[in-house]
Design a protein around this nucleic acid. Sequence first.
DNA 1: TAGGACATGTAATGCGTTACATGATTAT
DNA 2: ATAATCATGTAACGCATTACATGTCCTA
Lengths: 189, 189
Amino acid sequence: MKLSPSSYVVLGMLGLGARSGYDVKRAVELSTRFFWTISPVQIYPELRRLEDAGLLQGRDEPRGGRARRVYDVTPAGEAALREWLMAAEELAMEVRDKGLLKLFFADALEPADALAHVRAMRERSERMVRRFREEIEPTAEGVAEGSGRRFPSIAARFGRELNEWIVQWCGDLERELGSASVVDGDGGR
Amino acid sequence: MKLSPSSYVVLGMLGLGARSGYDVKRAVELSTRFFWTISPVQIYPELRRLEDAGLLQGRDEPRGGRARRVYDVTPAGEAALREWLMAAEELAMEVRDKGLLKLFFADALEPADALAHVRAMRERSERMVRRFREEIEPTAEGVAEGSGRRFPSIAARFGRELNEWIVQWCGDLERELGSASVVDGDGGR
DNA sequence: TAGGACATGTAATGCGTTACATGATTAT
DNA sequence: ATAATCATGTAACGCATTACATGTCCTA
């Protein structure tokens, strides 16, 4: 029985206090989404698999007439999570960024259009910074105050500061491209 | 006929001077790989599709007895690339980073192990910085000197500087975590 | 009383990877 | 002679998304 990183997202979220599949879904939307997306539909089958493997203990706990199944992490589940966290494996970071991809090919555009594209990239990260500030970091800090878990908040800080860095970088590039009416031989700093 | 971003990677690489599928494969490995991976196997069917759509013109050009098919971008292909580059669409950046994911759940670890994990993340980005410096940026600068195309080099600079930023960030976090944990003293073992 | 959040799924599809497969040319 | 690189694929599989589907509870 091999678990994927997505399995550990589900397992880990239950460890952080989520009880139902729906809790996991909401928690993911406010946190790991930004560095590990899983779609809502795969959460429920994953919960079943983890229960079959003995890493979760589930029971039905309907809210009124509404079906609902809640889970607890078993000692075996906690051990499996820790084992995965400590495993020395490739930590490969994969990025799929249409913005950067288009930037790469931007020589096919007029300079003004290339500049507009960099501006769009900057604005995208500005929106992300706001999103982190207003939603994600406050939620993560709530977790820290409630349970003493500090790393969700640290990961959120990474997300915000990364996007702040991108905003800065795009701003610099905009100035570089804007002032490059004259052909320069110097590649920059 | 809808083209995916991966289609435009192939189309764009031919626009940047690649001639065969194999050329595209090598170019991707040294450039877009880091923000848009496509696996070698999907390049060849993609070339056929683009040719069927009239965006490429291919012809067989064997090297000795070795089969080889080379492609030229048609005017329709150039137009399609420009149109995609200018399209106002979501530039969604997706990141799949096991390192960050594990950091998010690192409260389940002993402080010393969490610190070791941040160190591993830093070392990963240090390797990436070297990779960019030694392979990717020189290649991209070769393109710039050869053809005047500057954006591949700008994208490479983004990759290096981003990883430099991550190295910095992880270093800061290591100091923050190191000074907080009075418990372990094996930092210099 | 209607809309949104809660709660959980199924079915079909597509995308991409892994593993496998072939064979020629060039450098050592 | 052998390894590495050039060059191009096929087949099977699995993961993940999209679209669809169902029904309850709460709030304005």
